[in-house]
Write a protein that binds this DNA or RNA. Sequence first.
RNA 1: GGGCGAUUAGCUCAGUUGGUUGGAGCGCUUGCCUUACAAGCAAGAGGCCGCCGGUUCGAGUCCAGCAUCGCCCACCA
Length: 912
Amino acid sequence: MPDAKGDNFAEQLPKHYIPADVEPRWLEAWLKEGSFRSEPNRAKKPYSIVIPPPNVTGILHMGHALNNTLQDILVRHARMRGFETLWMPGTDHAGIATQNVVERALAEEGLHRDTLGREEFVKRVWQWREKYGSTIVTQLKRLGCSCDWRRERFTMDEGLSRAVREVFVRLYNDGLVYRGRRLINWCVRCHTALSDDEIEHEEKQSSLWHVRYPVKGSKKILTVATTRPETMLGDTAVAVHPDDKRYADLVGAVVILPVMNRELPVIADAMVDPAFGSGVVKITPAHDPNDFEAGLRHDLEQITVIGPDGTMTEAAGKYAGLDRFRARKKLVEELDELGLLAKVEEHKNSVGQCYRCGQIVEPFLSEQWFVSMRPLADKAIQASKDGKIKFVPGRWERVYLSWLENVRDWCISRQIWWGHRIPVWHCGACGEMTVAVEDPTVCSKCGSDDIAQDPDVLDTWFSSALWPFSTFGWPEETPELDYYYPTSVLVTARDIIYFWVARMVMMGLHFMRDIPFPEVCINGTILDEFGARMSKSRENGIDPLVMIQGGKQRRFGKEFAYEAYGADAVRYTLCTLTTDGQDIKLSPTRFEMGRNFINKMWNASRFVLMRLSGVDQGTGPLALEDLDFADRWILSGLGKAIGEAGRQLSGYRFHEYAKTLYEFAWGDVCDWYLELVKPRFGGDSAAVPARVLTWVLDNLLRLLHPVTPFFSEEVWRLLAAVAPSRGLGVPEPAAPLLVRAPWPEADPSWADAKVEADMEQAMGVIRAIRNIRAKFNLSPKARLAVTVSAAEAGIRDALLPLVDMIKAQAGAESLDLGIDLGKPAQSAAEVMTGLQVYLPLAGLMDVDLERKRIEKEFDRKRDTLVRLNEKLRNHEFTSKAPPEVVRREEERKAELARQMGELEALRDSLAN
RNA sequence: GGGCGAUUAGCUCAGUUGGUUGGAGCGCUUGCCUUACAAGCAAGAGGCCGCCGGUUCGAGUCCAGCAUCGCCCACCA
C-alpha cells in the first residue's frame, strides 16, 4: 500500500487518479477485514437483499453491472446507516442454458450426452461448473459488490436442493402440483417441455392456406384455412360455428381428410369465428391448444403427427420421417397437384420460439408435471392490492397483476438432465407414484423395490422462486431465516417479473406466510448507443470488465481499445444514468463522465491533503463564531447535500443522488470553497479552514462511498494520515475503514439562508466581472478597479464583508462599493438584480460593441416587462393567483423597471 | 387486438406537488498549461419543451385526440 506518511506525501500522489492502483487493493482489504460479513444481531435492525442469482454460465454484462451497482449502493448505504446489512450472493444452475453450454463444449471434443449417459453427463456439468462457475462471482467482486461472500449459494447446493424437494412434496400433498397429459410447448432442439413464459413470440410473414375437404357422399366441399398445413395430417374433425347457417346442414356430416383419406366428423363449436376465412376450422387436438380443448369437449382422438425431434411421425403416413417444414412444403405441393388447394393468402402470425435456443417450438402432447397457479396467484395479487408489495416505478405493479390474473398452470417438468430431479418414484409393479423428500427404497403402496425415479428435472425457475428463503436455510428454522426474512427490497430487471418476481411472491406467501420483500425496484434495460438491445449477434455489447480494467473490445465489426475507467467510474456513470427505471442508451464514452468526476474528486482530495499536512487543527470544539463566511456557506451546503443524498437514496432516485453529490462536490466545494479557502493557508490562520476542510472532505467521502467505494475508501485512508481525528466539535478518531463508517448527519445549526443568499449575490458580482473581462478580452492578469453600485443599503451591507473575497476571486485591484454610485467614465457595466457592476476600460472598450450589448439586454428586459405588465393588469390573475405569486411578480416588475432605467442611463452615457 | 414507455439544446438525457428568466453531461465558440485537477479553469452561443385542442389567472408539467419510435402481453385457424 502506498505510504501515507511524511509531511509531503500528498504531493507525491499522482495528478491523475489511477483506479488500477487502488481498486484491487481495497477489494482484498475489505474481504480480509470481513467488512461485508453479517450475522443476525438482535441489537440492530436488519437490512437484507438477495442478489438476483446470475446464471453460472454467465459472464458479467452491462445489465448485471447496472443491477448490481444499484444493489450495492443500497447495501452500502444501509450498512453505513447502522443496519445489520446482508447482501446475499449466489448463482443459478440455469438448467437448459447450462446444459446447452456444456453440450456445445462436449461437441467440440466430439462427445454427445447420449453417448456419455446421464450420470456421466451430469458429472461433466458439475466439472464445468467447478471450472467456470465462479467467473461471474469474481467479476461481481471486481465491480465492488459488497456481498457476504462466505454465504454464497448455488441453486443446486445440498441445502437448496432439499428446499426444492420439500416444496415439491408439500405442493403435491396440498394438491397444487399434479401430473397430466397435456399439450405443452416443446422445443425440438432442447428436447424438453417449456413453460408458457419461456416462449418468445415473434411476428412473421407467413401464408394462410385454404384447403378443400370433400364432404363424404356429396359433391360439397368444405374449405378450411390453416397456417400450419402439415398438422392437418393429425386432424380428427372439422368445426363450424353452431349458429352459422351456411353450414348448419353439414353438422354431423363427414368429410374426407385429403392425402390421409381419413373420415372426419363435422362438429359445431362456439370457438369458431364464422367471420374468419371460410368459417370452417380443422381440428388437430394434438397440435393446437384450442383444438386440444375442442377435442376434449367433443371426445376426439389425439393424433400426434410431429414427433419430439421435429420430424413427422408414423401417424403422418407417407410423410413420416420428414422434417416438419419440409413436410409442410411437400404437402402443400401435393394438395396443389390434387386440386385441393383453394388459395394461398399472405398472412402475418406470431411464432413461438424457445427463449434459450431460438428454435420454433411445437405444441406437443405429453405427460408433464404442473403447478396449479390460481390459488397461489390469488395470494400474490392480494399482497399487492393490500400494499404489502410496492413496485418502483409503480407502473410495474399492473404488469405483475395482469400476469397473475391471467396466469395458467405452470409446466415445471423438463426433459433435460441438468437440474433438480423430480422427487417422484414410479413403481414398476403397481404403477403407484411415491412422492418423497428422502429417496425411498420401496414403493409406498405395494412395497415393491422395483421403483424408478422420474427422469425429468424441474424448471430452473422453480428453485429460483424459493431463493429469498432457501438461501437462509429453509426448511430449517435458522436464525438467518428468522432475522433476514423478509428481505428489504428486490432490485431486478423487468424481463423477469413473471419468471421470478411473481413466483417468489407466490412461494414466499405460501411457505413463509409472508411476502419476500416489501419493495421491488425495477431498473431499466441497457441499450447500445442506437437504442438496440445489446447482443452477441449485433456485436454491440459493452463489456463492463473492459470499461473497468481497460482493454480491447470488438464492436460493430471493429476493434476498439479502451483505457481503464475503473469500477467507480463505471458505477458512478451507471448511477447517474438511472432515472426512474428508464432504459439507458449507453456508449463507451459515457464512462468518461464518471472517470472525470472521480478524477476531479481525487484532485480536490489531493489539494486538501496537501494543505492539511503540518497544520495543527486544534482539539477544542469550534464555535460558529470562529468560522469564516465561506466556512458557514459550505457547511450550509453540506447539510443540504447530506439531507438530499439520503432522501434520494431512500426513494431509489439514483440519478438524483448522484446529481446531488456532483453539484455539491464539484460545484460548491471545488469551484468555490477550495478557491475561497486558499488564501487562508498562508499564515497561522489555517487551523479553522483546515478543520472545516477536513470535515467537509470527511463527509463528502462518506456520501460518495455507496457509489464510489474504492476511491472514497482510498482517500479516507490518506486523510487519516493527516487528520486522524475530525469533527467540528471535539475531534473524534475517524472509523478505521470507510465501509463501516457511519452515514453523515447534518447539524441543523449549519443551515444559514442569509449566508447562502449573500454568497449568491457575491457570486453574481464575481461572475459579472469575469464576464466583462471575457467580453472585452482583458488579460487574466489585468488588475481591475471595480465599482459596485447597490440599489439599496441592505444589499450594500450584505456585500460589504465580502469585498475582499470578491476582489480575490474576480482578480480586482480595488472594489468601490456604495449606494447609487454613478458610472465611472469609459466603463463597461453589468446590470444585475439589486446592483450594477462597473469596470473601467479606458481605451479598451469597443463602444459600439458595448452599446449593442446594452441594447440587446434592454430589449430583452422590455419584452419581459411588457408581458409582465399585461399579466399584472389582468384582474383574473391578480384576483385568483395566490397573493405571494402576485407580490413576487410586482417585485419583479419593479426590479425590471429599475434595471431598464440603469441600462438606459448606460446607453446614454456611452453616447458622450 | 390490448397495455406501457418515449418525444425538451447538435447528441444523450434531467425537470419534484402547475407559478419568476426550462437545466446537466458531451459536442461547439472564445480566452487561459492561474502553485489540486488541461480528464482542468473562466466566459459564452445554442430550445415554437412532437402536433392539435381543452382545463386554468397561469401548462414542458394536468386532460382528450393525433403522429412517430420502442417495449410487453394476447388461444391472430
